[in-house]
Design a protein around this nucleic acid. Structure first.
Lengths: 206, 206
DNA sequence: TAGATTGTTAATCGATTAACAATC
DNA sequence: TAGATTGTTAATCGATTAACAATC
């Protein structure tokens, strides 16, 4: 249902605006101008206004934006007015840390299923989640409404695991494995690879 | 000394090329055409050639690119012909997972110093690293050649911690805290925020 | 040589920014 | 009303892509 005509790069900035608006709200602010928001978020005011105008006119001329109102609208645009249940596959160091991370639930993303292949890890409980055998993916996912997966398996297992997840109805994957996944149209992938970011940084370190 | 005229977006793709070339090398390949690389990396062949041409002519017409030769060149461009020592500040769940993560060292990034504020964590050893009191940042960094920091402290401590790191000579920060850091010119920041990525993904989940 | 593929110039496309009218 | 600030149109800028000459 996402309007197909809105540039993805615009969409990618909305979560950033939302994050900053939430900060402002917590600080007790009620109204913010695009100039003030620009200062906080590090994006030109005119670009913020242009981005928002793709979705509607949320501001008041001469005043600025009502923070609560704008947050509501952004949450609605980004489909955040619901809890998103997630599966995590791969419960190693990183997987465990992500299961324990409070930041997901705080924003409405809840890890409800954890899968691993290692018999020593299967059956252990982490932050209230009992790790299941990855073999049970079929049954576990079939009876659920999970559409998002966190992929934290070793690189050499990532593609086949992703394929299996997609075969079982997963529509979005946050991929922590350092490889480029090939997936069918209609499945969204976002990659998190700190090494790539570091290599980008070192380019600028003389 | 990085040529200042090369678009950052071009630089940001080089690590991706390097990653894929390393895969190909491990698979025993010796030469790759921009078409084949394009297929693997998901970026148009013409764009790969254009990107590379900013730095030189690394290919052979009619043949393609010698993989080892291109890897060498990319590593040199990205300043990867050295070990980059790093400090990590914040040894919670995520920090511990990152200290244990093998992927950094494998690519020449080595966490050599871990700092935390929590007395229960200070003094503990993780993957061979003894966690130090963050109060010792001054002495620890002064006598080192560490220029890169991983920032894994809680959001409310991130800005002040980043300021302290910069005051002690850190030039690049990989920021895992869900806030936008304000730092002086000349300090590079890259952000890793899975929640922002998830919120971007859910836009497309009807 | 013919075929394949690079590297580069020029054209296109899309995103950012400037200018400003609208209006609270 | 005057001042502030949005939302939008038009101009600019920069990145991607197409076309193709060069050449291994």
């Amino acid at each position: 249902m996402a309007k197909p005509n809105i540039p993805d790069i615009v969409v990618s900035r909305l979560p950033l605006y939302l994050q900053t608006l939430n900060h402002l709200l917590r600080e007790g602010e009620e109204v913010v101008s695009s100039d003030e928001l620009s200062e906080k978020v590090g994006i030109p005011a005119v670009q913020i206004r242009k981005d928002l105008s793709f979705f509607g006119g949320f501001g008041v001329k001469g005043k600025g934006y009502d923070i609560i109102h704008l947050i509501d609208n952004l949450r609605s645009i980004l489909n955040l007015n619901q809890i998103w249940p997630m599966v995590i596959v791969g419960v190693g160091n990183l997987g465990q840390a992500l299961i324990r991370y409070q930041g997901f639930a705080r924003q409405g993303f809840e890890i409800v299923l954890a899968l691993d292949i290692n018999p020593n890890i299967i059956g252990t409980e982490i932050a209230g989640i009992v790790v299941q055998d990855v073999e049970t993916m079929d049954t576990a996912l079939r009876s659920s409404d999970i559409r998002i997966a966190l992929l934290t398996v070793p690189a050499n297992a990532a593609q086949s695991t992703a394929d299996a997840l997609v075969a079982h109805g997963i529509k979005a994957i946050l991929n922590y494995a350092p490889i480029i996944l090939k997936l069918p149209e209609g499945v969204r992938v976002a990659n998190i690879d700190p090494v790539l970011k570091l290599e980008h940084l070192t380019y600028y370190l003389s």
